[in-house]
Amino acid sequence: MTSALVLTSVAVDVGTRRKHRRILHNIDLVVDAGESVAIMGASGSGKSTLLAACLGLIPVAHGTVTLRGTDLASCSPARLSALRARHIGMVFQSGELLRELTPLENVALPAVLNGVDAATARSRAAARLAAVGLSDLGSPTDRLSGGERQRVALARALVNDPSLVLADEPTGGLDSTTRDLVVAGLFAVPAATSCGLLVATHDKHVAARADRVFQLSDGKLRPLNVSRR
């Protein structure tokens, strides 16, 4: 079985070419299918930068990022886009939903853009929404609560059956009850769809739900022995 995501001694520099700073050093990380991994770290420790490297949005200074066996460095921009569209689902801190579209349409959008016909996309979206507990959502997108928004975002991330779901501080602005609701939905994903899940968070309650947890500090990734089993 191939791993959803493999990072081998990855280093990332930020800044200009002449004046740059290495913020990630020698990162090794494997996310297998059906497995959840959490990366903990203080704000500014480089979690978002690491996710951007996983998406192939920023080049790595050293090492390789491999998505389902494909080295991202060897991909053309078009191939990279196609890989992201087909295999990665992403959940942002604030949802990033389009308020012009209804929640259902927001969820269906990536499927439609991937060439799925409207009816199929719609029924798939409805199923994904039901899966996150939002089967009869009537409100317009800009009236959703924070928790509903994140769950819609999760449903959207899953609509194309990705092999890897990335979440960047998915519970950033939520209270503890709502957080638990979102986290429950999020961590149910690997088991249900056998895709890999990589969550960046600074919240140890979130991290506690993951199969494996890493600590990111000083640009280095260290495993943490917080096991829920």
């Binding site: 998406l55 949005l57 886009s81 196609a82 992201r84 569209a85 990665i88 992403m90 942002f92 990033e96 389009l98 308020r99 959008l109 990536p110 853009l113 991937n114």
Partner: peptide, 15 residues
Amino acid sequence: KVLAPIGVLTARPGP
């Protein structure tokens, strides 16, 4: 700004 993430992630910024 709003459309960028979805455009990038879905690989179809055209629409």
